[in-house]
Structure formats: C-alpha cells, structure tokens
Amino acid sequence: MTVAATDFRERASIDDVTARLLDSSAALSYDPNVEVAWDEPIPDDHYGLNPEWSTLYGTRMWDEMSEEQRVLLTRHEVGSIMQTGIWFEMMLQQLILRDQYAKNPAKSEFRFALTEIADECRHSLMFARTCDVLGIPQYLPPRMTVELARLLKTTAGAEQAYGPILVAEEILDVMQRDWMRGENVVHIVRSTSKIHVVEESRHMKFARAEILDAMRGAGPVRRHASAWLFAAAAWFIVNAMVSPEVYPNVGLDKERALAEVRTNQHRKAMMRMSCVHLMDFLAEAGLLTRRVMPVYQSVSMI
C-alpha cells in the first residue's frame, strides 16, 4: 500500500503541473498570423539578432566587416538558428507523440502534451515565414546530426525523450529574451522571439517535470546513460545552431570565420551565460555527472 500511495503522489504531482500549464496556455497563447506585422517593411540597418549574439562579435573579423555585412550576417545567423529550431521541433513532436502513445487522454499530462505539439507547429510555421521574409536560404544541421536524430526520435523514451528538448529550449530561451528587447533587431524577430519565449516557458516546465518524474527511483546505470545522452544531444545541438555556410553566403572567408569562431572568447562567455539555469537543473536531477562535464565544456556550456 505504501508503494501505491507513493506512486499516486508522484503521478498527481505531474498532473498538477500540467493542469496549471493548460490553464496558462488557455490564458496566454498567440497567433503569429495576427501578432506579427509580416507586411511591415524591414529597415535596412536592423540586425537579425543582437550583435552581441553573433558568432563573430568580438573578433578581428567582426571589426573588419562593414556594417552592411554585419547586418546581413546576423540575419543569416538567426535564419540558421530558426531553421535548426524547425528541424528540432519536428523531431520533438515525434518524441512527445511516441511518449504519449496509448496514455490516458483524460489526464492533463496527455492534453498538455498535445497542446505543446500544436504550439510547436505554429512556432515552426512562424520561423519558416520569418526566413522567407528575410530572404534566408535553407540551412540544415550536418548530415550526421540529422541521421543520428532519426535514431533518437525513434528509440528515446521517458527522460531521454524530454532531455534533448529541454537542452535546446533552454539555450534558445536566453538568447531570445535579448532579441525580443533589441531595438536594433528587425521587428519580426522581436515579435516571434516574444511569442516563443512566452510559450516555450510552459514547454520547459513540462520537460523538467517529465524528467524529474522519470528519474525517480532510477538506478545508477540508467542515470549515467541518460546523463551521457543529454550531453551528447547538447553537443550536437550547439554545433548545429549556426551553419558554416552562413559565412560564405554573406561574402566572408569560411575557413577564417570558423577559426575565429572557435577561439571567440566572447561567444563562449555568452554560451555559458545562456546555460546557467540548464546546468543547475541537470545537477538537481543528478544528470550532470563528473564524466559528462567535459562534453559540456567542449561546447562552452559550462
């Protein structure tokens, strides 16, 4: 009887979380077709993202670039990040559907999961439209990343399904909180960032609750396996965010640009700052182990 009571309390806990998230979703959700001024002209001098978030900001190459090149680079960078986001959101929708397959539809957890999928569809559409308005070409993650993700979305379950989701959303959340306030950032990026920040805050709470719920009672083997999967997913996500092709597409030397990005201490500091809350949560969940920390360090997340 004691075990059953404990299981009930754990289940009730996540149902309580998702019930609150459903209320929040009903009270505060956006329609990008209405909220974003898609037809408003794009000022020539407005960036795609705050310059401080550019991969080359703080480098000699940035200092040598014309203002026009800087603006163009940031637009291609935000377009690449958004298209990586679309790719990831399509994957996470499949992960959530697989996790919720045959679960009780009367539960708030099930209903919020489907609500999140609806949100992600709208987000992908608004990111796609933003790239179209800004004239950004297609950018995809590296082929190996795309193929490994096929395996993940087909096999991952429980915390291994929600971990990569949380990693991607936490990193982007901090960036977009800056972009939505950037007076020199194009208005459609400010508007879409605001929508994404508000609605993804619910998704992150859902992912955290699912991870903590799944990790209750997990043994050391499972915990270490999940810690490695989270770290590997983070490594691939960070490396896929800005395509190397953005640099030649704006008239920059690709090899030199990549070399400067790799040694850009400003970019590394911004990345570490964007991951503080994520690392705190992973530590709380027992998923930031000593052995996986070098993986996070290799992509400047810690």
Rank of each mutant, 00 (worst) to 15 (best):
A113V: 07
Q69M: 08
R75L: 14
D63G: 03
N104T: 02
T59P: 04
E116P: 01
M65L: 14
I81K: 07
M91C: 12
A102E: 11
M90W: 01
Q93I: 08
E52G: 13
M61P: 02
N104K: 07
R111K: 12
I86P: 06
K103Q: 15
I96D: 00
W62V: 11
Q83V: 10
V71M: 07
T55F: 09
E109P: 01
P105R: 11
Y101K: 12
E109L: 08
M65R: 07
M91G: 13
W62L: 12
K107I: 02
M82S: 14
T59M: 04
I117E: 04
F112H: 04
W87V: 13
E68C: 03
G79W: 11
L56F: 14
K107A: 02
S54T: 06
T59G: 09
D63L: 09
Q69E: 10
M65T: 03
L73G: 09
W53I: 01
Q94D: 13
I86Q: 13
M91I: 14
I81W: 13
E68N: 06
E67S: 14
M90N: 01
L92P: 01
E52T: 12
Q93W: 00
Q93R: 05
R98L: 09
S54Y: 05
A102Q: 12
E64N: 14
L72C: 03
V78D: 05
L73W: 10
L73I: 04
E89M: 09
T59W: 01
L114P: 02
T55Y: 06
A118R: 13
W53N: 02
